[in-house]
Computed example of a mutant assay.
Amino acid sequence: MILWPRFQQGDPIAVTAPSSGVPEELHHLLTDTKNRQEQRGFPVTIYPTAWKQKKSVSAPAEERAAEFNRIMKDESPKAIIPPWGGERLLEMLPLLDYSAPIPKWILGYSDTSALLFAWTIKTGIATAHGTNIVDIRGAEMDPVTAAWEKVLAWEGGKTITQSSSELYQPEWKFDEVSDVVFHLTEPTEWKTVSGKPERVEGRLLGGCIDVITHLVGTPYGKVREFQRNKLHDEPILWYFENCDMNPNEMKRCLKQMEYAGWFENSAGFLFGRSAAVSEADGYTAVDVYQDLAQDTGLPVIYDIDCGHVPPQLTFVNGAWAAAACSNGKGTLTMQVPEEADDAEA
């Protein structure tokens, strides 16, 4: 069974920093996004860790974990959305209280995806891989980013379909102000290794491959156990995005996951666009995807809207989903059974 948090218009949002916080010179980003969300009808509480940053983290692991645990036991916030990712979230995972937490959404990506992955694996509570809260501080949101609200407010018995973007942002321009935060200029094109239209369905699980790979062989990476006990042994539809790795590094990570048995009962793979090094001695990311498809016999869709090259769809860990790609366009359809309306599927 997967537990599904409940979220609706007017529900409070908690901002905590389980990885990197916001340095003083960028505090205006937190203030701006708080004001913007409250204009949209969501009360926001920014917790102390979000305002701090030193030596690559917002605070010592014990402080970050204690704050997170307090929020999880508080009935008021219905969603936790960190400012952004970071580098050292992994060190707080053993300090979290995974026993009988109050179901609430956790939304984010990058380093935050290690928390999303571990939380869903350990608790059976669905988590959402998508926008950070500082990235929705603009006066407007593009349609792909804006879908986070619909996904988090999703009711049991319903399906929700998200479509690929028209344009994406190839690089970050922090010194240029935009009403939608992102500078979407390049045509989006979803692709398949087969070169043909593909449709693949299964239970979503994944995140930023840079950090997810470090969960292999730990109590936070017991994928097969999770799949048997929580997903009724349904196949997993993996989604990954690459922040910093070159193709050889990504290939090693995927092989480690394969050797650990993560891909034994899988439906296919989705890979987000990446600004990371795309070539290493002639070996490219596309070569990695082709090798993966050949090694596993499973379809691979890539350059999708996911990760550090925005905008990005909102993926729900644990959800049944169907991803389709044809003629450079794509869709992601997710569904929750009727009985999930009051927490479980």
Rank of each mutant, 00 (worst) to 15 (best):
E186F: 10
R203D: 05
R203G: 03
G195C: 04
W190F: 15
Y168F: 14
L204D: 01
E201Y: 08
C208R: 09
P219M: 09
H214G: 13
K173H: 12
P219C: 06
F182V: 05
S194N: 10
T185C: 09
Y220V: 05
P197Q: 11
R199Y: 12
V181F: 15
P187S: 09
R224S: 01
E225V: 01
R199W: 13
T188R: 09
V216Y: 02
V180G: 04
T185G: 07
L167W: 14
R224T: 00
Y168G: 00
T161I: 08
S164F: 09
S163V: 13
V211I: 07
V200G: 05
P197Y: 10
E186Q: 12
E189G: 05
G207V: 01
F226R: 02
T218D: 03
V211W: 02
E171K: 14
R228Q: 12
K191Y: 07
I212E: 04
Q169E: 15
G202C: 06
T161H: 07
Q227H: 00
K173I: 13
H214F: 15
E189W: 03
S165H: 06
L204G: 01
W190E: 11
V216W: 02
T213W: 14
V177G: 02
E186V: 13
T213F: 14
S163Q: 15
R224E: 00
R224Q: 01
H183K: 10
T218N: 05
P170N: 06
I209F: 05
R203H: 08
V193Q: 09
K196H: 09
L184N: 06
R224M: 00
P197D: 09
K191T: 05
K191M: 12
V180L: 11
T213M: 14
V200F: 04
H214M: 15
L184Y: 09
Y220L: 05
L205M: 06
T185Y: 11
G206H: 05
V180Q: 11
R228I: 09
V216G: 02
G207I: 01
I209H: 03
T188D: 08
S165G: 10
E186Y: 10
G221W: 00
T188W: 09
L167M: 14
Q227Y: 00
K173R: 14
F182A: 08
S194Y: 11
V200A: 03
G221I: 01
I209R: 03
L205P: 00
R199T: 15
W190A: 15
F174S: 12
V223K: 01
I212N: 02
T188N: 11
T192H: 02
D179E: 15
P187M: 09
